[in-house]
């Protein structure tokens, strides 16, 4: 039998399946973080469902001892939507990748976010197709050499967070496989959000795109390239925390904080800022070479969840019309009787 939810350990969420990722894959860290977070959530194991599509990321459900559904390529948001609508009491998580979510499944992703269905979407972004052995993905960078672009990619990449914000996501965050504590806290925040939560996890593929995020994870480089978002705190980065972000017209610009007047212009991070503009500027920072890449929670706002609206309408109509009577329904309209 299941242990009480309050006393779960990480091991309670492990399965007897051999994990089949390559040794050293960033996915191991994500799996481990998720199992730890699940153990802490206090949600009964039977109420957790992980849905996935296809790709390395999407093998994850097999390795977590909850209900799991390894779907088909790109369709995890559709399947998860059905699960959540059929039973809103379930906590539904999606494991997906950059190809799965942003190429073949792009349509389902944006509509899930538009509806604000209460599912947690973990997008493992390694900027490459790995399970099919190294083709370009929708997040591959311009010039990135892959098996399908041996002379360098000429497809401009998607910015996953900007896309999610554009689709109306109510919770948008980014973390990195290499930063376990940050990853865990980001997953906890996603778990606590009511509505669709979108988390991009930058994930290293050792085999086909090693070091893709080296400038963000490397001890010597990350200080200048990474900005860790904290709600209510100024947007500050730099090895010596000496740089900040301010608005210049409708764009961000980095300024050196030297005790001068520019220090006062540095923006304070606000996850609940009304309007998507601010979060969108943050999301777009990773596309600019002269700006650092933010991680953390970009946006966390409330909007009615789809599953609640669906149930509320059913309740309302049922209250208005009374519970359905099958016999009456079949005889509705003009009916007539033929006697013997």
């Amino acid at each position: 039998m299941n242990a009480p939810a309050s006393s779960y350990k990480k091991e309670d969420f492990e399965t007897d399946q051999d994990v089949r990722w390559c040794p050293g894959c960033g996915d191991f860290a994500i799996l481990s973080a998720l199992q730890s977070v699940f153990a802490d959530l206090g949600v009964p194991r039977e109420k957790l469902v992980i849905v996935s599509g296809i790709g390395c990321s999407s093998r994850l459900p097999y390795y977590v001892n909850t209900y799991g559904f390894h779907g088909i390529h790109g369709r995890a948001p559709a399947i998860a939507t059905g699960v959540k609508l059929a039973n809103p009491d379930l906590e539904v998580w999606i494991a997906t990748g950059d190809g799965d979510a942003l190429a073949i499944g792009g349509n389902h992703l944006i509509h899930a976010l538009r509806r604000n269905i209460g599912v947690k979407i973990l997008l493992f972004n390694n900027r490459v197709y790995s399970l099919t052995k190294g083709q370009s993905s929708p997040t591959s960078e311009l010039g990135q050499k892959t098996k399908s672009a041996p002379y360098g990619s000429i497809d401009p990449p998607f910015n996953a967070l900007a896309l999610a914000l554009g689709a109306g996501a109510t919770f948008v965050a980014r973390s990195i496989d290499a930063f376990l504590p940050h990853l865990k806290s980001t997953l906890r925040r996603a778990a606590a959000h009511k509505g669709a939560a979108f988390v991009e996890i930058l994930q290293n593929c050792l085999v086909f795109n090693d070091g893709a995020f080296g400038r963000l994870t490397d001890k010597n480089a990350r200080g200048e390239n990474l900005l860790v978002l904290e709600d209510g705190q100024p947007l500050v980065f730099g090895r010596r925390h000496d740089k900040g972000l301010r608005l210049n017209g409708l764009d961000f610009e980095a300024v050196v904080m030297d005790g001068g007047s520019a220090d006062h212009d540095v923006l304070i991070h606000d996850e609940r800022r009304s309007g998507e503009g601010y979060a969108y500027l943050l999301a777009r920072m990773s596309d600019h070479a002269d700006l650092p890449t933010p991680i953390g929670v970009f946006r966390d706002v409330q909007r009615p969840c789809y599953e609640d609206s669906v149930r509320a309408q059913i309740r309302e109509i049922t209250k208005e019309q009374g519970a359905g009577d099958l016999e009456k329904l079949l005889r509705a309209g003009s009916s007539w009787e033929v006697r013997e």
Partner: peptide
């Protein structure tokens, strides 16, 4: 749904959930 694939996908998810 957003398309027929989303429609049947959601139906399969709902079937999984009972």
């Amino acid at each position: 749904a957003e398309d027929e694939i989303g429609a049947i996908g959601a139906a399969i998810g709902a079937a999984f959930a009972g």
